[in-house]
Design a protein around this nucleic acid. Structure first.
Lengths: 150, 150
DNA sequence: GTGAAATATTAGCCCAGTCTAACTTTATGC
DNA sequence: GCATAAAGTTAGACTGGGCTAATATTTCAC
């Protein structure tokens, strides 16, 4: 594979290694914010549907237990995405609303893209949920073009 | 939004909630195995390139520190994906090789798909890294068709 | 073959995200 | 309006995945 086959890395190789490492770094960063994005998106949905976002409903839709929701909401509050009062529903801050809107938009595009590609709605929804957090702006743009194109 | 606007959920709504919860559950499952997949894929690459996979090289390419690699490798060994001896390179088990091959295949398809869509190689590599773990068999099939088609 | 450099490991810390069990508060039915 | 049910919280545990600092081992140059 190498021109020298030993461990003295060429500058070109070093650059490739670095770039690869950055890619993984990026994926890890995305992972960290995934849960937060899922929550704010869901909270926005619930507020639309029911006028408020109750932890018990968040738990049901996320498929986790209420204590997990509580801990996560504390973190979101700490990070300025939601406001909450004990034993009350949770609400989005301005920042939270903005993030939710951005996520909804991204989710929408990815979903429509998958559907246009010919995927069944059920699978499209599942895959979109996982994919949406890992799609760069450039890719999203291409997805958008593909959806509206022809 | 609702026909009744109260909290007594209809069976249809209950089904939707359940389905949503399962989707998130699936994403969480995928997240759990992502790191393992990245490691076995990388180990396979390194063995091809250099004949062996050393922790120090894994660390460099993953963009993490050697202790993190050590801990992860222990987990992979526990899960039967790699074998290792102290102070020695790591090797894939049969199961690990199979997983690596499957990942390589998936990665390849996702990457080629993104490139065909018109994405630049750098971004395509980054996005593929994140997306590949969240693509269902059905979607992969569609990607494959898209790549070979026309 | 020995000493320095490179590599690998261990110990110990942190945070996120999940859980169960136990407890508190709020909401509801009668 | 009170008892009970529902919802929310707290406490405590576990796992994964990251880190730094310190230690152990191997490799390599000479």
């Amino acid at each position: 594979m190498d021109d020298d086959n030993s461990e003295k890395a060429s500058p070109v190789e070093a650059r490739a290694v670095e770039s690869r490492a950055e890619a993984f770094q990026g994926v890890r960063d995305a992972r960290r914010s995934e849960v937060a994005e899922d929550y704010v998106e869901l909270i926005a949905d619930l507020m639309l549907e029911q006028g408020e976002a109750r932890p018990v409903d968040i738990a049901a839709r996320m498929g986790v237990t209420p204590p997990t929701v509580a801990k996560t909401l504390d973190r979101l509050a700490r990070d300025g995405l939601v406001t909450r009062a004990r034993y009350r529903s949770v609400f989005l801050t301005e920042e939270g609303r903005a993030l939710a809107e951005e996520c909804r938009h991204r989710h929408e595009i990815v979903l429509r893209f998958l559907l246009k590609l010919g995927l069944d709605p059920e699978t499209a929804e599942r895959d979109a949920e996982g994919i949406e957090h890992h799609v760069s702006e450039k890719t999203l743009k291409l997805f958008e073009e593909f959806v509206s194109g022809s």
